[in-house]
Computed example of a mutant assay.
Amino acid sequence: MHPLPCNTVLLGDCIEQMQRLAAGSVDFILTDPPYLVRYRDRSGRTVANDNNARWLKPAFAEMHRVLKPGGLCVSFYGWDHAGEFLDAWRAAGFRIVGHLVLCKPYASSRRFLRHHHEQAYLLAKGKAPCPARPVSDVMPWDYTGNRLHPTQKPVAPLQALIESFSKPGDLVLDPFCGSGSTLVAAKAVGRRFLGIELDKQHQFTASMRVNAME
């Protein structure tokens, strides 16, 4: 295995990059993978690998391997493909220990319902200790305008999750880091971070965001 990288954003396929990491080397994972919905925003931007699920099981298998025993993972997911995500998490060995709803002040889409939330599961590797200060399973969501990424997440709720589920100095991994919101949140609260991003422009954006915090 290569020396453990940290406080950086790696460019490339997250499965290949995680295979280079030692088992049990990551303290906490917080990630927003593609939802498998072929997403396209109003300006035509898309998300890499959002049109297939070939990466789903091998990516979460690697996440489980690199996470320390007793560690936690928060993963966003697409509600209309929940079964595929649940199958991948369980196949990897994760135990489901919680569910999060992040409430939006606006509807991101309107079909049978107005969609006013994002959702994530809290997953554990083995027997994980409960946090000293658990966060609510319903959290507020700030509008980012998706200026830096078509599915850009706000920093504030990610920061609250990192503070609850990790300790200062811990290594936080985001294998689908996009524009780097998880990494910004981790750095803001004194955690080490490691991002992986397939798209070169988004990898550059994420790197610039965390470097600007110096």
Rank of each mutant, 00 (worst) to 15 (best):
A132K: 10
V47C: 02
D137Y: 05
L171I: 11
R147W: 00
Y35R: 07
K127M: 05
P168F: 01
V66E: 02
L72H: 13
R133V: 07
F165V: 01
P131A: 11
A48T: 12
L148M: 06
T151N: 04
V135L: 15
A124T: 08
K125I: 02
Y35A: 12
Q159E: 15
G178H: 11
F94T: 13
V172H: 06
F94W: 00
S207G: 13
K127H: 13
V66N: 00
C6I: 06
M18I: 04
S43G: 02
L173Q: 07
D50F: 03
V138Q: 12
D50G: 10
G71Y: 02
K200S: 13
F94M: 06
G180I: 07
A128K: 01
V37Q: 06
N211F: 01
T144F: 10
A206V: 10
V9T: 14
C130L: 13
G78C: 08
V101I: 10
K104I: 03
A124N: 11
R54Y: 05
E16T: 12
L173A: 09
S75A: 15
K200G: 02
T144V: 08
Y39T: 09
A124S: 13
R95Y: 14
L86G: 15
Q159T: 01
R111C: 12
F76Y: 09
T46S: 08
R110T: 10
Y77A: 04
H99P: 00
V26G: 09
P150C: 08
D174Y: 07
L67N: 09
S43M: 12
H115C: 05
F165H: 14
L183M: 01
S109V: 10
N146A: 11
H64Q: 04
V189R: 06
H149Y: 09
S75L: 09
S207E: 11
P33S: 01
K125S: 06
G126A: 10
T144R: 04
P131S: 11
P58V: 00
R38M: 13
M208A: 14
D142P: 05
A188R: 14
K125L: 05
G44I: 14
P34G: 03
K167Q: 14
D87L: 13
Q203K: 07
L194G: 10
A188C: 01
M63R: 03
A206H: 08
F60Y: 15
R191G: 08
A186V: 06
G83D: 02
F85P: 06
G190I: 05
S207V: 00
D80M: 05
S25D: 04
V97T: 13
V155I: 07
